[in-house]
Amino acid sequence: MSFGFFSSLGLAYEWRTPNFQISIKAAEKGAELFQLNRHTTWIVSLLPIEKQAGEVLDFTFDARMPQHNHGMVTKAKVIKISRLEYRVEGVRFHMPGNWLLQFLIKDKTGTTRIETPLNIDNK
């Protein structure tokens, strides 16, 4: 899956899980979502699709490079800013290559783990 086209246009990226529709957009106007070696702050929206999903109890984010056996050099901070929105600060993809975005969403039905591959171009 490549995010480059959408993120470079400054658009949010969205996808659906059984319980939630997840949307990521850059907090700074016009900033690219996924870029090499640049700090980015995301606004992540979690919209419940199924009624039973209910309120998000916890949300965490991490990104790893499985081929390199390491993750980001920064530890992203996740701050709840509203019932359905989180601010993720300190996201920096410090190397080009294949990354794996990892989201954990905890609600009353359990914990959903979402992993999404992302290629960061060398530019």
């Binding site: 700090h39 056996n69 390491h70 993750g71 050099v73 920064t74 530890k75 901070k77 300190g90 920096r92």
Partner: peptide, 17 residues
């Protein structure tokens, strides 16, 4: 600078460090 912005998010406990 990116390194200065890093300061708030650096993690010494991470195994990769």
């Amino acid at each position: 600078s990116e390194s200065c912005r890093d300061l708030n998010f650096l993690d010494s406990e991470t195994p990769e460090a």
